[in-house]
Design a protein around this nucleic acid. Structure first.
Lengths: 233, 233
DNA sequence: GAGTGGTCTAGACCACGTT
DNA sequence: ACGTGGTCTAGACCACTCT
């Protein structure tokens, strides 16, 4: 009797990855059908399916019913970023977290914010500006609009113990959002807030957060000079 | 006879999502075991497993053997970016693509690049600078180091028809990489390349690409002023 | 129409972490 | 130790899509 070794779906993935990597199967090629692969590798078709599905999710394969499975021609490289709480980001670097609310008032949003938030033109919303500090040094400057219609409870919140960022994460459920990353040239105001020179290049994240079809909040984060965002495939 | 309806794993996911969303199961709570859920919902345990695994991957649940499954306390928000070919990115906006190689020479990498590329200190590598254009206007300026030991075939390539970006994607397999996003203040050289003023804030992507444990290439992309990178959850 | 991936089932065994 | 999630199997049917 030959020993019966169980083939894991990870083993199948590795095998397939290798064949692709070694150009056994080239970009654009069709690879064998699930049933054939299962027989060749000595495992159930479900195991092959599990393996190939993972590779397809990773963008390495393209699968279509009836047509078959092929090696992706131009693998779209995808990078995934974790979007942590600012507090968590600072404390994970071993630095001391603090925040200070600079401004908190009801205000009429400018047209672009009205559009992003899908709110009526003549209704004021809550506008909060907050500076976040790491070891006492400016880390990121936040300008945030909060939809008062969607989140009426925010009316009585002064964000002293919980920053707008934390408060919203704790109190409100999210289910979607848009992110835009860009670079700006620091204005004198921004330079003053972040204790840097006017004219420096600053990393910016604009985020709009939704829940149940409503926009909850729209925020711009301007990071200190030298800030970096990392990820890895 | 009651009609036998098949329960899909998506249906199970929706049910679970709803119970979490309705605070039926609150953050931190343990949810029923797979076997119990399967019986309650009238499907196989494998179906429940498929559903819960997906929610765990999405960060909504935390699963541990023996301990059970609980609703994640502070769901980590994740954003996924597609990293397209520069040509594809430009052409997808309906703009005309072009590139021009400004510099191509063997050169000793500076220490930080040596470290990133894990190459010996006294070996020259290929250094290529390329400007990418959209409708004739500077789009992104690329400074790239290519590991000649790993990719000897690049010796005879002048990147006239295929840019370094495209050539490498076509000729070399990747299996990993590091990405760093940041903002810089344009130097006069960079300003000249990108036809902008010195001192402007520019969006920068540093990328190091690996294959089979070797570093293939290390590249810095400096984008034109106003460049934005979008994503959505 | 027919072939391929997508999914469900019922049962079984295993790995691992909690106790 | 023991219980829970993790996985594999063999078989079946279905959905989609290409010809």
């Amino acid at each position: 009797m030959s020993k019966q070794e169980r083939i894991s779906w990870q083993a199948v993935q590795n095998e397939v990855r290798q064949r692709i990597s070694q150009r056994d199967w080239k970009p654009g090629d069709f690879i064998p059908h699930e049933a054939d692969l299962a027989q060749e590798l000595g495992c159930a078709r479900a195991t092959v399916n599990r393996a190939l599905r993972g590779l397809a999710e990773a963008g390495l394969l393209e699968r279509r019913r009836r047509a078959g499975t092929r090696v992706t021609l131009n693998p779209v490289r995808r990078a995934e970023f974790a979007i942590p709480l600012i507090r968590a980001e600072i404390e994970s670097k071993g630095q001391r977290y603090a925040h200070s609310v600079c401004l908190r008032e009801m205000r009429l949003p400018p047209p672009d914010v009205q559009a992003r938030m899908q709110v009526p033109a003549n209704v004021t919303q809550l506008f909060v500006q907050t500076l976040y500090l790491a070891n006492g040094a400016p880390y990121v400057f936040e300008s945030r609009w909060i939809n008062m219609t969607a989140i009426p409870a925010v009316r009585d919140e002064d964000f002293a113990t919980f920053s707008p960022n934390e408060w919203l994460v704790r109190e409100v459920a999210f289910d979607g959002g848009d992110f835009t990353f860009s670079a700006i040239t620091a204005s004198s105001d921004e330079a003053a807030m972040l204790s840097c020179r006017a004219g420096e290049g600053l990393f910016v994240l604009d985020r709009t957060t939704r829940h149940a079809g409503q926009v909850i909040t729209s925020v711009r984060l301007v990071f200190h000079p030298g800030y970096q965002m990392h990820t890895r495939i």
